[in-house]
Design a protein around this nucleic acid. Structure first.
Lengths: 148, 148
DNA sequence: CTCCAGTAGTCAAGTAACTTGACTATATGG
DNA sequence: CCATATAGTCAAGTTACTTGACTACTGGAG
C-alpha cells in the first residue's frame, strides 16, 4: 500500500468523522437542546449507565480532572446532570444524568441514527454493517479524544 | 438499523479517527518535527500543491481568515512556510511550503502509512482497501473540521 | 488506634486557539 | 474615476483547557 493511498484513506476517515460529529450536534440542537457541545456527548456516554465520578470522566475524556470538573459544573448549571454523594466514598461524588440529560442522550442517538441512515442510502445497509464491523475491529479501547 | 447500532458505529468511527490523528502526530514528532499540531497537517495538505492564500486556507479549515492568518504566522515563525507576493493580486499573498514544510508533509504521509499498516495487520490489506472505498463514497467534500 | 502517604475534588490563575470588530490596501464593474 | 467588494492584518475578547496549590477523606503499616 502506497503512502498516497494511506493519506487518501486518512483524509476520508477524518472527513467522515468530522461530518458525523457536526450532524449529531446539529440534530441535537434541532431537537431543542441548546448549549451542548460535542464533548458533552462523550461525557454522557460515560455517565449514562449508573453515573461516574469526576475522575472516571477525566480518564474517559483524556483530560485533567479539573477540566472534567469544570465540564460537570457546566452540565449541572444547564440541568443535564447532578452531583450526588458517593455511596461508598465520602471524598467522591457520583455524577448522574438528570431526566433532561437522558432526553438529550436519546436525541443524540436519534441524530446518530439519522446520519448513519444517510450512509445507508449511498452504500446499502449491508455494507454499512460491514463498515461497522471493520471499524470495531480496529477501534482502540482507550479514552476518546478530540480529533485535533 | 437500530439506534444502538448507529451509536456503536459512531463511537467506533470517532475512536478510530481520534487514534489515527494521535498516531500521525506522534509519528511526525518521532521524525523530529516539533511544535506542530494536527491542525497544521490539514493546512499543509491545502498548501502542498502550489500554495494558497490565507482566505483559501480559512475556507479549507472552516475557520475565520484571522485564525488562518495566525496559523500562517506560526508556520512562518517555525520555518515551515513563507509568504510570497501573489503573482496576480497585489492585495493577496501566496503562502507556500518551505523545504522544511515539504519534509514535514512527507513525514506525516509516512506516519499515516504506518498507522494504516497496523490496520492491515488486523483486517488484511484487501479489507483495508475496501474500507477506504466505502469511506470515500460517504466522505463530504466541504472543509475538514476538528471532530469536536 | 493512630499516623501518614495516597486519592477525590475544588479553587485560582495562566495559556492557547480561536472569535468579533475595526481598519488599510488593492481590485473591479458601472 | 468613483463606489463597493475583497485580501489581509491588528487588537481585544472568549472559551476550553492547563498547571499549581489546597482541603477532605481513605486505608494500610506499625
Amino acid at each position: 500500500m502506497q503512502n498516497s493511498e494511506a493519506v487518501t484513506l486518512s483524509a476520508a476517515l477524518l472527513a467522515v468523522a468530522g461530518e458525523l460529529t457536526q450532524r449529531i450536534h446539529d440534530g441535537v440542537v434541532a431537537r431543542g437542546f441548546e448549549g451542548v457541545r460535542p464533548a458533552h456527548g462523550f461525557a454522557f456516554t460515560r455517565l449514562a449507565p449508573d453515573g461516574a465520578t469526576v475522575t472516571d470522566l477525566a480518564v474517559h475524556l483524556g483530560v485533567t480532572k479539573q477540566a472534567a470538573s469544570q465540564l460537570v459544573d457546566e452540565l449541572v448549571r444547564k440541568g443535564y446532570a447532578e452531583r450526588r454523594p458517593h455511596p461508598a466514598d465520602a471524598r467522591a461524588r457520583l455524577v448522574v444524568l438528570t431526566e433532561a440529560g437522558w432526553a438529550c442522550t436519546r436525541a443524540a442517538e436519534e441524530a446518530a441514527a439519522e446520519a448513519v441512515r444517510a450512509w445507508g442510502e449511498v452504500l446499502g445497509e449491508g455494507e454499512v454493517r460491514e463498515l461497522a464491523r471493520k471499524l470495531l475491529r480496529i477501534a482502540p479501547d482507550g479514552p476518546i479524544r478530540p480529533v485535533w
